[in-house]
Design a protein around this nucleic acid. Structure first.
Lengths: 179, 179
DNA sequence: CGTAGTCCTGTACGACCGTACAGGACGGCC
DNA sequence: GGCCGTCCTGTACGGTCGTACAGGACTACG
């Protein structure tokens, strides 16, 4: 080992990589963040990062794993009334605000969704959430309001990661239910 | 020329390239759209696209030119009351909804803003708009509401390009003023 | 007819991306 | 000591990006 000082070894580097990647993904997006960027933020080479997380997807997948569980729970349960669903949605968004950008946007190139790909589940998630918000075959006004809610939540949650979760939750819940 | 049929020549290709680029930028983002993608959409080679718009930036710049004028007007004028400013902001967003994603997001890599670059003006624009919305040195609640408004506008406007502008304007104005 | 200018293709380049692979430094275990 | 597995570096490959450049097809103009 390097010395008797507090050592930086083991899979602690994994978590450091994950933390750096989370931050960079949040501010630049997935496809605009290279392995070299992440490596530089942690003080390693890009091959070292690739060693721990083999395809680049795995980084996103690992970051998204906890959110994925809550996603299924959110889509699986029946809420009585729109307000209840909105509450649960806000809670979900706030809880995973550090990776919400990955959920809502790119993961893969944001276009075609090769079926069975990791990012495919997330785009269908976004659409599913939208359907829950606006209903199936929504009219123009419902569509507008639905997207407005999603946009307000995403931006509100992403740009205020430094604020306490309860406060964000409270304010956004009220804002979103007013839409 | 090719024949006596309606000819596709001249700088009409320029506008076709612009149209295709606008659409692709809107749905995939600037940095995730290559010259080859645009070229394929118009039925040309990427070098042909590069011939008309020399650095790639120029494509974005040309698309953003009309919005840039309104940006300056929006920031330059003093509105009495938040409602009046919100009205003007919604009008701006709806009018340029086809390129709002470029205004709000990437144009360049979305990170550092090399001073004097084309995209720099747009990030400072977003921040300036936010300051107008939330005030200077805003408290947590104002920050949250400000970003929620911007998010609602962006998503609402981008995802409903097929709807008539007046309807979008009306619904979003009400939604945003409720936040 | 010749010449210039416009529009486009083909090819090639350097930079960067994610990935693969060989090898080195190191600790743990026999 | 010898050996193996883990963690990391260095190098290299194929692919894609934006860009530069030479040349061809064509029209317009003298």
């Amino acid at each position: 080992m390097y010395g008797n000082e507090t050592m930086t070894t083991a899979d602690d580097t994994r978590t450091r990589i994950l933390a750096a990647a989370q931050e960079l993904f949040a501010e630049r997006g997935y496809s605009n963040t290279s392995l070299a960027d992440i490596a530089a933020a942690v003080g390693l080479t890009k091959t070292a990062v690739a060693y721990h997380f083999h395809p680049k997807d795995r980084l996103a997948a690992e970051l998204l794993a906890p959110a994925a569980d809550d996603m299924l729970a959110l889509l699986g349960t029946d809420f009585d009334g729109r307000a209840a669903f909105l509450d649960a949605l806000v809670r979900f968004m706030v809880r995973h605000r550090a990776v919400i950008r990955l959920v809502m946007e790119d993961v893969n190139g944001a276009d075609d969704a090769p079926p069975g790909s990791p990012g495919e589940a997330f785009r269908t998630f976004r659409d599913e959430i939208f359907t829950r918000l606006a209903g199936p075959e929504p009219g123009p006004e419902s569509r507008l309001r639905g997207w407005a809610v999603l946009g307000a939540l995403q931006w509100g949650v992403v740009q205020t990661v430094d604020l306490p979760a309860e406060q964000v939750e409270k304010v956004l819940t009220r804002a979103v239910q007013a839409i």
